[in-house]
């Protein structure tokens, strides 16, 4: 059996997983003070992580809206007035499915691309090269990505919310026995401003978590294409898990 010592020995410190993530997050947090290093890179990352993610988020939102509309009319038939479809679509899209489904989609897209990029830089010694040029890897690589994702996830999610509600409304008007005024009556009846900002705050935290997992997994990559592949997969899985945990956390804290 071949035995590559680099695969077995060059792994992150053996302290517990949570401690490891915690310490690395703290390092990242400290690097935020190095503004001159990360600030010129922020806009480029926002464009890359945010704008490029809009199509997939909107695609998901359209279908979420359709399904929610049909589903709620099926649930409410007979028992509840049909205009509640508007309420259910609005509430669900804004508070839960908009942020979470968008977050999951971006965990795949953004988390994986960050992990693959930084992983490749790590194993080809580009990260070492950066450090020998006296840059801090956290300030140069991690902070701009995490900040960009924190700022852009809510923006993408806001688009997704708007599109989700719109597609729910179009579905209701065309496929259900519901008029536009009725749909909006339901939508407005239970709407609170909190619904929107609750969704957006959540999505900002999802962005931070997804990007941070991508960065940490990428920078911990073991050498070789296989190592980068593994860290990419881990980044996506951990990003999705973090979203679910945070989702429950915000529900406990803010509702």
């Amino acid at each position: 059996m071949t035995h590559d010592s680099r695969l077995t020995t060059y792994s992150p410190p053996r302290d517990g997983f949570i401690t490891h993530i915690g310490r690395r997050s703290l390092e990242t947090f400290r690097a935020v003070a190095d503004v001159p290093t990360w600030s010129p890179l922020l806009v480029g990352q926002m464009r890359r992580l945010g704008v490029d993610s809009v199509p997939i988020a909107l695609f998901i939102a359209v279908f979420t809206g359709i399904v929610l509309s049909l589903l709620s009319s099926y649930i409410f038939t007979g028992a509840v007035p049909l205009y509640f479809v508007g309420a259910l679509v609005g509430k669900t899209v804004m508070m839960e499915l908009g942020p979470v489904l968008t977050g999951m989609a971006l965990a795949g897209r953004v988390g994986a691309s960050i992990a693959a990029e930084l992983g490749t830089m790590k194993v080809t010694e580009q990260v070492d090269a950066l450090e020998t040029l006296a840059y801090d890897r956290n300030a140069y690589l991690v902070v701009p990505r995490v900040l960009a994702a924190t700022l852009m996830f809510p923006v993408v999610t806001a688009f997704a919310m708007a599109v989700g509600v719109t597609s729910g409304w179009i579905t209701a008007v065309n496929l259900l026995d519901l008029s536009t005024p009725e749909f909006f009556k339901g939508l407005r009846m239970f709407y609170q401003f909190k619904d929107i900002w609750f969704g957006l705050v959540k999505s900002a935290s999802f962005g931070a978590a997804v990007a941070l997992m991508g960065c940490l997994q990428g920078l911990d990559s073991k050498s070789g294409a296989q190592g980068v592949g593994q860290s990419t997969t881990r980044a996506v899985v951990l990003g999705c898990e973090a979203i679910l945990v945070l989702d429950a956390f915000w529900a406990l804290v803010l509702l």
Binding site: E125, Q126, D128, A129, T132
Partner: peptide, 16 residues
């Protein structure tokens, strides 16, 4: 310290 030292990597390690 790293500001005083230039480092030429074995496999170049250019930022691709």
């Amino acid at each position: 310290l790293r500001g005083r030292i230039g480092y030429v990597f074995q496999f170049a390690a250019l930022f691709d």
